[in-house]
C-alpha cells in the first residue's frame, strides 16, 4: 500500500565516497507528492550517484534515504515497488524482442495482461514488438526504456537524463509523457543537465555541484534569492530618439538594450509599469510586449560558477 506522506522521497545527509573522493557530499532534499522535481547539475556532479543510492543499486557511506517512509537500504525491496526508473544509459536484453522485454519488466512489477503493441505504438515504436533489441537504435531503446519505466503507473518516476540519444520528436514525446504521468498523480524526479528540459516541466529544482546540493526551490524563488530580475521586451512600430531617452530616463532599471525597433529592459517587477508607460508617453505604437522571468540558465550559472 502506498503511503500518503507528503515527502515521497526524503534524502538526508547522503554521502558516497569513491576512492577517497566524495562523489556526493552531505546531500539532503525532499521531493513532495505529485510534483516534478528537477535535479540539475553538470556532468559528474553526483546526479547518477544520488539516484543509484535512492534505488539501492549502490551502497552509500553516510545518510538516510526514505521512500514513502520506507528505508531505501533496509526495506529497499518494498521501497522499489513504487518506483519506475529510466537509467541514463538504457540497456535491455538484446536477444529478447521488445515485447518480451516489456513483458519481463511487467512481470517484475507484477502487472499482467498488457497490450504491448499498443504500448509500443504510444512510444512511436509501431510494429517493433517482434523485433529483437539488438536491431534497435539507441533512440528506440531509450523510448522502450521510458515505456518500461511507466508500466504499472508507478507512484514515483525517476528519469536520469531521459533525453539522451533522442531526436527532437523523441524529446517532445518524453516531455509529454512526463506531463501525462504528473496529471495522473505520479511524482517525477527528473535528473538532467539540459536546462530547457527542466525549466519546461519542473515545479521545483535542486542544483547539485561537485557533489553538494547548492540550491533547492522553484526556479522563480531561486531567481528571487539571487536577486535576478525579469526582462521586458517591447517591440515598437518605429524607434525614435524620444522613446530611447524616455526609456533611459526611467530610474531603477538594471540594463536597457535597444536594437532596431526592440527594447529590452531588465528591472524589478514594480518598475515594469513605469517603463511601459514611458515608452507609450513618448508616442510609441507598441506592437508586442513580453516579460521573461529569470531563466534557469542564469540561476544555474550563478550557483555553479567557480
Amino acid at each position: 500500500m502506498v503511503s500518503t506522506t507528503k515527502n515521497v522521497i526524503h534524502v538526508d545527509g547522503l554521502t558516497k565516497v569513491y576512492r577517497s573522493q566524495k562523489a556526493v557530499d552531505d546531500v539532503s532534499f525532499k521531493i513532495h507528492r505529485g510534483e516534478i522535481f528537477g535535479f540539475l547539475g553538470p556532468n559528474g556532479a553526483g546526479k547518477t550517484t544520488t539516484i543509484k543510492s535512492i534505488l539501492g543499486l549502490i551502497r552509500f557511506d553516510e545518510g538516510e534515504i526514505l521512500i514513502n517512509g520506507k528505508n531505501a537500504v533496509g526495506e529497499g525491496k518494498i521501497a522499489r515497488q513504487w518506483i519506475g526508473y529510466l537509467p541514463e544509459r538504457v540497456a535491455m536484453y538484446r536477444n529478447l524482442t521488445a515485447s518480451q522485454n516489456l513483458s519481463f519488466f511487467a512481470d517484475l512489477k507484477k502487472v499482467d495482461s498488457l497490450n504491448y503493441d499498443s504500448i509500443l505504438a504510444e512510444y512511436g515504436l509501431e510494429d517493433t514488438g517482434k523485433k529483437k533489441i539488438r536491431d534497435f537504435s539507441k533512440g528506440m531503446v531509450q523510448r522502450l526504456g521510458m515505456a518500461q519505466a511507466v508500466i504499472g503507473n508507478p507512484d514515483i518516476l525517476i528519469l536520469d537524463e531521459p533525453s539522451g540519444g533522442l531526436d527532437p520528436r523523441g524529446v517532445r514525446l518524453i516531455r509529454n509523457k512526463i506531463r501525462e504521468v504528473k496529471s495522473k498523480g505520479t511524482t517525477v524526479f527528473l535528473s538532467s543537465h539540459i536546462l530547457s528540459e527542466v525549466q519546461a516541466v519542473c515545479d521545483r529544482v535542486g542544483i547539485i555541484h561537485k557533489g553538494k546540493l547548492v540550491a533547492e526551490d522553484s526556479v522563480a524563488a531561486l531567481g528571487k534569492k539571487l536577486d535576478l530580475k525579469p526582462m521586458i521586451t517591447v517591440q515598437v512600430e518605429k524607434m525614435t530618439s524620444e522613446i530611447s531617452s524616455a526609456v533611459n530616463s526611467v530610474k531603477n532599471t538594471d540594463s536597457v538594450n535597444i536594437e532596431g525597433n526592440t527594447i529590452q529592459v531588465v528591472c524589478d517587477a514594480s518598475t515594469k509599469a513605469e517603463v511601459i508607460l514611458a515608452i507609450a508617453k513618448a508616442g510609441a505604437n507598441i506592437l508586442n510586449l513580453q516579460t521573461e522571468e529569470p531563466s534557469l540558465e542564469e540561476v544555474f550559472m550563478r550557483y555553479t560558477e567557480g
Binding site: L55, G56, L57, K77, R80, V90, M92, L108, G145
Partner: peptide, 14 residues
C-alpha cells in the same frame, strides 16, 4: 557490463 543489471536491480527484487 551491458548495463541491463541497472534496470533489473531497480525493481522490487533482492
Amino acid at each position: 557490463e551491458s548495463g541491463s543489471l541497472l534496470l533489473l536491480g531497480s525493481h522490487a527484487v533482492s
